[in-house]
Every structure is written in C-alpha cells, then in structure tokens.
C-alpha cells in the first residue's frame, strides 16, 4: 500500500452534506473486476451531463481544482453502501486526503486500506478550511505531527495511533494478522468445544 506522510497542494471545496458512496461512484461502475481506472467516473452524475460531457461548473472539472489531492467536504461523508470502489475512485483521481466534520464508519475504514487519510475537524475549522479551499490556498497536511497548515494557521487533528502507523509505514493488514496464526488456530480449537455446531470442519 502507498505510504502517507505529508501532502501539499490546493484543496477542492465540496460543501454538500451526506455525500453518499452512490454519489461518489454510481452503480454502473461497480461491474468492474479491477481496482483501477475508476477516477474518470468519480462523482459521475455531478461531473458529467446525460451525454457524458463534463459539466463546467462542477468543482473537480475546473482548473486548478481538477488537480486537487485534497477534498474538503460537508458532514457525514461517505455514508451508504460499503463499496470500496468509492475510495478506489478518489485515489485513482488523485485525492488522498479528505477533510470533513464526520465520516461514515465503513468508508472511514476503507480509506485506510487504500492510503487515503480522512481527517475529522470541528464545524468551525471545517468552515474555515472550506473558505481557504475556495480561495485556492495551499494546504499542507503533516501526518506525523497531525497538523493541517494553511496561510500560517495550524489546525491539529486526532487519529488513532495504529491507523497512523499503518499509513506512515504503508503496512499490509493481512501480513500483520498472519503473525497471529497460532492464536487464531488456538481460538478455533477452544470454540469447537464450546460451539461444536459452528466448528464442525475444524479437526
């Protein structure tokens, strides 16, 4: 997985609340069996007209925001469907940091599996950052020190230490869990005694 340490650039403002994963990547793009190539379809219905032409007034279609690596969005970002196609499409577009006042749980988890940093800020700071984003100010995200810097202002953020470590190191969860193979096997053998109807196949 890609590491995330620091990130510098302008941020695209998207002041809509409850942006759901259907909005981020609509159903017709879920037929793929690959993780890549979804960036072009990100926010499809807001970004393209019925003929598939780019809508000029959508933020990610306008310069310089079409190059944004950071998104500042309204409350409860990523609600709805669990589709990991949502973070895949954001990442493929080039976005690896999303700032909001809150995220839906599954989407939040999915971000960390893909080297994307979701940052939760207070409503006041969200408003401030939304304005900075609209004014095309440069954002600097520093994960090790847990700070967003814009225009000389520093806004700190919280992140659970294990999530931070995984992002900074680009660690693979499966690899880490496989180190606990013996504990998993022990658990199964114990539970076979307690709940034999669930562990019939465990010898």
């Amino acid at each position: 997985m890609d590491k995330f340490i620091t990130l510098k650039g302008i941020a695209a403002p998207l002041p809509i609340v409850n942006i759901d994963t259907d909005m981020i990547i609509p159903k017709q793009f879920l037929k793929t069996i690959k993780r890549t190539g979804l960036g072009i379809s990100l926010f499809y219905e807001m970004r393209y007209d019925h003929q598939g032409q780019e809508l000029k007034n959508f933020i990610l279609n306008t310069k310089p925001f079409n190059q944004s690596k950071i998104l500042v969005a309204g409350d409860n970002f990523g609600c709805g469907s669990s589709r990991e196609h949502a973070p895949w499409s954001l990442k493929d577009f080039g976005i690896s940091c999303i700032i909001s006042t809150s995220f839906a749980d599954i989407f939040y988890n999915n971000c960390f599996q893909n080297g994307i940093l979701p940052i939760v800020v207070s409503p006041e700071n969200s408003k401030k950052l939304m304005d900075f984003a609209s004014d095309q100010k440069e954002f600097e995200i520093d994960l090790p020190s847990q700070n967003i810097s814009v225009e000389g202002e520093k806004i700190g953020f919280d992140i659970e230490p294990y999530r931070k470590e995984r992002l900074i190191e680009g660690l693979d969860d499966i690899g880490i869990t496989m180190n606990y193979e013996q504990s998993i096997t022990d658990y199964e053998l114990l539970q076979k005694k307690n709940k034999p109807w669930i562990f019939k196949d465990i010898k």
């Binding site: 993780r35 999915n110 969860d173 499966i174």
Partner: peptide
C-alpha cells in the same frame, strides 16, 4: 453482523478474522 469493504473481505478470506475497535 456488519458490512465491510473489499480489502477487509480479502482479510477475512485469508485469516477468518477482522481488525476492529
């Protein structure tokens, strides 16, 4: 019972466990 993303689907297939808080 809860919904998970595809990376977690892979994790469960490989380890029969999931990382949670």
């Amino acid at each position: 019972a809860f919904g998970i993303g595809t990376s977690e689907v892979e994790h469960v297939l490989a380890t029969q466990t999931i990382v949670q808080k």
